[in-house]
Amino acid sequence: MAFDEQVKHAQFLRLYVAHEESLLSFVRTLVPLREDAREVMQEVAVALWQKFDALDDVTNFRAWAFTVARFKALAWLRDRKRDRLVFDDDVLELLAEEVSEHVDAYEAERRALESCVKKLDAAQRKLLDAAYAPGARMDALAIAAGRSPMSFYKALHRIRMALMDCTQRLLAQEALS
């Protein structure tokens, strides 16, 4: 790899890694499943690198990357229009708009989430850890825990909602201080 190419690649990696989580969250809002988001993100990463030369000003990387991610996600969804969970185009556009216009707010919520997870009790953290482990299957986890899948989903939902309340409180306190 030529020196210029190495410099460019290093610059791209720094930018990509810095914004990867935001982009993943954005894509996740548009596609039905967590695995789908990871699949789209692989295409996004490749497209960003391939088009990186076309980016005039690296300070615009985030906005540019969101545009590419939006395009890639919508193209991916077009091929899966018959999937029962895919939203209509107009709703997808509205969701994309919501996230891309409030990137900083969602990023702040992700930052606050770490503190909120630490406030959960041991049983809640254990449940989260099991539910989000690579390859985890909710039905198998529920059976192993001696619960019905529905009660497992509900417990997980309550924890997520508690975390969302917590992040909002933390961010509100930050705004006041």
Binding site: E21, L24, S25, R28, T29, R34, A37, Y106, E109, R110, L113, V117, L128, Y132, R160, L163, M164, T167
Partner: peptide, 8 residues
Amino acid sequence: YANIDTTL
């Protein structure tokens, strides 16, 4: 909700 789920 999607943001929290993705981050977790």
